[in-house]
Each structure stands twice: as C-alpha cells, then as structure tokens.
Design a protein around this nucleic acid. Structure first.
Lengths: 106, 106
DNA sequence: ATGAGCAATCAACATTCGTTGATCAGTAGA
DNA sequence: TCTACTGATCAACGAATGTTGATTGCTCAT
C-alpha cells in the first residue's frame, strides 16, 4: 500500500535524524523552548560548524524549525514531526495478533 | 542525570537500528508473527548475506529476537524494546511548557 | 563606512555503514 | 557417511556520514 511505503520513508528519515548522540542532545535541549545556535554551542561545548551541520540534518528531517532574527537564528522543536514519529512507532508495535504463525519454510 | 544519558544512549541505538529501509521493512514483516530468514529472503527478494547483516543490527539493538530451530532460525519482534522506543519518543515530546523562553544571547 | 559577532557553507579528511561474493558451521535426509 | 540446505561470518569494496578549519554572507554597533 502506498501509505505504508510513505510511512516507511518518513520513518527512515526521522529515525536517521535521531540516530546521533549530538542530535538527540540538541532535541533534549530544545524541549524547554527555542534556543539560538550560540546557546547550543555553549551548552554542548562544541564547535559552531559541527553544530550547524547537525541542526541542518534535524531541520531537513522536519524535526526542528529555524527562526532567523537579527544576527541570531533560533531553533525550536517541531511538535508535528514528533507526533508523526509517535505514529510511526505505534504502527511498528502493530496488531500484536496471532503469535507464531510462521509458514515453517515448507 | 544518569537516567537521561542512559535513555539517550538506548535512544541512539534504537533509532540507528531503524534508520534503514530494509530494516524497517523487516520489522513490518515481523508484525504478523515470527519468520525465518528464508521467509524474509523471499519476501524482500534480496540476498541472504545482506539480510543476515540487517537482522544482526536489529538483534544487537534488541529490537528482535532469534530462535534457532533445526536448521532454521526464526526471528520475532521484541515488544519490550518497542515499548522502550515509545518511551524514548514520548520523552522527546517532553513537557511542552513555556514557549519562547530563550536566553536571547545577551 | 568599518569592524565585530553569528551562523551557513565548503573542502578535505577520517570513519562508519551497507553490499557482494565466498567461505564456514551446523542440521536433516538419503 | 555423503550431500544438500540454512544461516552466520569474513574480506573487500564503494558510498554515505561526521569532523575540522577556513571562508563567506548578514546584521548590528560605532
């Protein structure tokens, strides 16, 4: 089914974006509200370039949004994407019906 | 906090294991019950070696379990891990309190 | 206009990840 | 025992990812 494939694709994208310690930590920091890159640089004690890279990955996956203001850029969680992620995970848990229904390989 | 760090690590592991189309498809196939590798090889129309590789990744992440029987090995979802995954995702959605509480970068 | 600060982008490099084909170990059946 | 089959593992290769330092573009303050 097309929707299944589409969900699989968005699932892969979301999971990949979250499959990195730095990016997960960014997400955690953003739980309390939006932060600019300089906040995050200080909080994570890491280089600006590296941070920018990971922010881009998260943004491309739709997990965060950016809001440029003056010379700063504020990043925030995108709760829509997180709801979508939750849906993907729940779809994975699935029906849980009938256990042990293998075809037994011939 | 230690539990936070631990959750972040298991989160990274789980997310990484699911960040691949083939592995997600394996998970979906296993929703209906356990399958042996030959079932999956046929279902996904792919090589045995490749499949074995991805099954190992999923197993190492704790997302699936294996049950050798005779010359076949049956794989099944580990619902414990899926519950853990759900918890990680929900922790990510977090408090959702106070928006716009940035430190404003000076 | 000039200088300073924030953040994105780039190139270069190292590391990790996924694929493929071959080999190996264990099991079932003749 | 000999053979056929399932599935794990390995080596080799190519592709994708992450890191670092430098550069560039903007914006604000002087």
């Amino acid at each position: 089914m097309t929707t299944t494939i589409k969900r699989r694709d968005t699932g892969v994208n979301l999971f990949h974006a979250l499959s990195d310690v730095t990016r997960l930590e960014i997400m955690e920091r953003l739980k309390d509200g939006e932060l600019c890159v300089c906040d995050l640089t200080e909080a994570l004690k890491t280089g600006q370039s590296r941070l920018s890279f990971h922010l881009k990955v998260l943004k491309d996956a739709g997990l965060i949004t950016d809001r440029p203001e003056g010379r700063w850029t504020y990043y925030a969680l995108n709760h829509e994407a997180l709801k979508e992620l939750e849906a993907v995970v729940q779809a994975l848990q699935g029906s849980r019906r009938g256990v042990g229904s293998s075809s037994r390989c011939r």
